[in-house]
Design a protein around this nucleic acid. Structure first.
Lengths: 217, 217
DNA sequence: TAGATTGTTAATCGATTAACAATC
DNA sequence: TAGATTGTTAATCGATTAACAATC
């Protein structure tokens, strides 16, 4: 295992979930072996890139043959830590929080929605997708009780920092931030920002000048 | 203007919306002038990076002074094509489509939700956020009528390609794809993939090995 | 064995960082 | 003027692509 010796690029890590999801599809199609060539064709990624990405974690393929789908799937799942069965919480039951609470792909990847938080008294106590909505003030207690590691911020911008602070105090380790604002947290907390207006804005950029980039992501 | 002579990196373009949103915040705070130093501090981006990004589109700053917030805001808005008042459509009234239809930031950036599409007869004719839900079969007509340029795919994976095909035929120019599947479209159509499970999976990767990357995005 | 395909090293390409002259 | 800060060029760093030896 090279994970600890060599620094893996962020770009590589972001491609792993794509490989994973495609391999799952292949498994469902009863494909047992796949070459980097064919996997690349499916994803719009060069075979060299795929081999390089995978090789940075170990030797998962068989020369002259390809990759065993089932085996590679297990390996990538392990690399991504999907076996950890992370518990996560959603903060904010607006339209976006509601949608995320009902998003099926998370649980199929092994993530478990353990709690939802809001401040609106009419929402506290509700069950969304079978998960209870708690008051923000009870976060510390619930996070401990339910062993929650990841917090998803889906509150209005104005409250994002306040919620982030609460999450940190409660002992969360990772934050997925949908609020379009930079949040400040200690260095030990990992944050991923997901500002949805970035996607639409960059689309606008390309459409406005009629120059589609050569390669999609 | 250098836009046409020099190829701007995708990384730069993805940062423009971040600059834009921060400048808007500054304007609301009545800040008139900002230095790359201070803007960088707010965003967690180096000042050199910001100056480089902006300089690739023109000379927007004043040496020894900084950038005029109002002026820079207008310039970045123009670069991003936000003045084009793009009409967009959402396809799929599931939880995600519903949330996107109600997302306020799009309209505040000048994007106009002009139509929603689904196939469920109980949803056709409904108005969400004041916008009518049409049947998928009427797409070509409605897209033409309402001059829609952008389609947001929020349907289950299994139907993503079929919807993409319909969008292309209808004359759409850009697609924002939330379905976790690669869609195939002609080269002239610009596609942005937004697979929400990538965010959670990469969080999982870092949490599983306790090595937060030095820099957040 | 011959053909295929990986894993790895080297070459290229692109993006970020550093340095500094220009100038407000 | 002196101090500050941009815009730009050069240096560094990192990621992708190409090439090919290893080997199934």
């Amino acid at each position: 295992m090279k994970e600890d010796s060599i620094i893996i690029s962020k770009a590589t890590i972001d491609r792993l979930p794509l490989y994973f999801r495609t391999l799952r599809l292949l498994q469902r199609e009863d494909v047992e072996i796949i070459s980097s060539e064919e996997l690349g064709r499916r994803l719009g990624i060069t075979p060299e890139q795929i081999r390089k990405d995978l090789a940075s974690f170990g030797q998962f393929g068989k020369k002259g043959v390809g990759y065993y789908v089932k085996e590679l799937l297990r390996n990538i799942g392990d690399i991504l830590g999907l076996h950890c069965n992370w518990n996560f919480a959603i903060i904010g039951v607006g339209h976006l929080g509601w949608a995320l609470a009902n998003y099926r792909h998370f649980s199929s990847l092994g993530f478990n929605l353990a709690a939802i938080f809001d401040v609106d008294p009419t929402k506290i106590g509700l069950h969304i997708n079978g998960v209870q909505v708690f008051h923000l003030d009870d976060m510390e207690k619930i996070v401990q009780e339910k062993n929650i590691h990841i917090g998803i911020i889906a509150v209005p911008e104005a409250h994002a920092q306040e919620v982030a602070d609460k999450l940190v105090v409660s002992g969360i380790r990772g934050i997925w931030n949908f609020a379009p604002r930079k949040i400040r947290v200690p260095g030990s907390i990992y944050v991923i920002d997901e500002d949805l207006s970035v996607g639409l804005s960059s689309l606008s950029y390309y459409l406005a000048r009629k120059t589609p980039p050569k390669q999609q992501i």
